[in-house]
Simulated scan of single mutants.
Amino acid sequence: MSLAFAGIGETRVIIDFVGKDDVKRHLQDLGFVKGESVKLISENDSGFIIMAKGVRVAINRNLATKIMVA
């Protein structure tokens, strides 16, 4: 399932990324790494606030659909 479908307050583990290599690299540069836990903090019309490695990161819906979680 993609991170975009996780519920507010849920903690999930990143299992994969989808998309082109430059998108995957961008997500990794933002701190999203396979095997790491991420928590969906909040959601609004334009995107999400995600807690990754103790840091809050804002991403848009398109990027959230590229992050596969379990």
Rank of each mutant, 00 (worst) to 15 (best):
A4E: 05
K39V: 04
A52C: 10
A6C: 13
D29E: 15
K66T: 01
I14L: 01
I59W: 11
G9W: 10
N62L: 15
A58H: 07
D21V: 09
I8E: 13
I14H: 03
G47R: 06
E10N: 14
V18P: 03
R12K: 15
L40S: 09
L40W: 02
G31M: 07
E36R: 02
I49L: 09
G35R: 05
G19Q: 02
L3G: 04
G35Y: 09
V33P: 10
V55T: 15
V18H: 00
V57K: 08
R61L: 03
G47E: 07
R25G: 06
D22N: 14
I15F: 04
G47P: 01
A58V: 12
V33L: 05
F32E: 04
H26V: 12
D16I: 11
L3Q: 11
A52D: 12
L40F: 04
E43P: 08
H26G: 08
S42H: 11
D29N: 15
M68H: 12
V38P: 01
K39T: 13
S46D: 13
I41M: 11
H26I: 03
R56V: 07
S46C: 13
K24F: 11
H26Y: 12
T11S: 10
V18Y: 02
I67G: 06
V57H: 00
F32G: 00
R56M: 13
I67Q: 05
E10F: 04
K24H: 07
I41Y: 08
G47W: 01
V13L: 04
M51S: 15
F5A: 13
K24M: 03
I49G: 05
K53R: 14
F48A: 07
I49K: 07
T11C: 03
G9R: 12
K20A: 15
V13N: 05
N44C: 13
Q28M: 12
F32Y: 05
D16T: 13
